[in-house]
């Protein structure tokens, strides 16, 4: 194996096998009242491909902010579950949030990183996780109640159950192939997505 390849798989999880679209579709199937915040880029397209939903809030920018939007939401909605769905690049920009979430510890919060080890939206440059940076270990060290690596299909169902349990804060890094699936664009009018989300929860828009 070439040196570059060795470095690539240094995180010990081997070659990525999971298809991001299939994983997200099964995680969001029968979602109940699950509230979902996505990071910008591929993870937003994956959530949209699984079916647009008024309980989805999609970021189109504000890179590094998805997890913290989810945290503010989880505090506000303690009786519901909140899942943040983002990518490795987006989360790497908000690593401090792991500490903030670990310290704050809301049980109804999960952070799911679709880790393709690349910055997919900008030309597939290898990301830090391609060099072995261990997000699962970071979340564990930050005090998340659970932090797991998902590499095979049989783990996905278990993860889906964890999202619905109230045992967080939880973290999962889902190792997905670095495919470029067709873009399925979520609505990008921020005011509309915000207002739709609030209306769904029974709040006035202002």
């Amino acid at each position: 194996m070439a040196t570059a390849e060795k470095r690539k798989f240094q995180d010990g999880r081997g070659e990525a096998k999971l298809d991001r679209r299939a994983v997200v579709a099964s995680l969001l199937a029968d979602r109940g009242d699950l509230l979902v915040v996505t990071g910008l880029g591929s993870s937003a397209y994956d959530a949209m491909a699984a079916g647009d939903h008024p309980r989805n809030f999609y970021l189109w920018g504000a890179m590094g902010g998805a997890a913290m939007v989810g945290l503010g939401l989880a505090f506000a909605r303690p009786k519901e579950r909140v899942a943040v769905l983002t990518g490795d690049g987006e989360q790497l920009m908000g690593l401090g949030a792991l500490a903030t979430i670990g310290a704050a510890g809301p049980a109804n919060f999960s952070l799911l990183v679709l880790d393709n080890r690349h910055f997919g939206e900008t030309g597939m440059q290898p990301s830090h996780t391609a060099k072995g940076v261990d997000l699962v270990g970071m979340a564990k060290a930050a005090g998340f109640a659970w932090s797991i690596s998902v590499t095979r299909e049989q783990h996905v169902e278990e993860l889906r159950e964890r999202l619905q349990a109230n045992v967080g804060p939880g973290f999962a890094s889902i190792l997905v192939r670095a495919d470029e699936a067709p873009r399925v664009l979520p609505p990008r009018d921020g005011v509309e997505i915000k207002n739709r989300f609030r209306r769904e929860l029974g709040f006035a828009t202002i």
Partner: peptide, 13 residues
């Protein structure tokens, strides 16, 4: 982080 959290809080009422 607090800017993002403010948005999440408002989304959740």
């Amino acid at each position: 982080e607090g800017v993002a959290a403010a948005c999440g809080a408002w989304l959740g009422g």
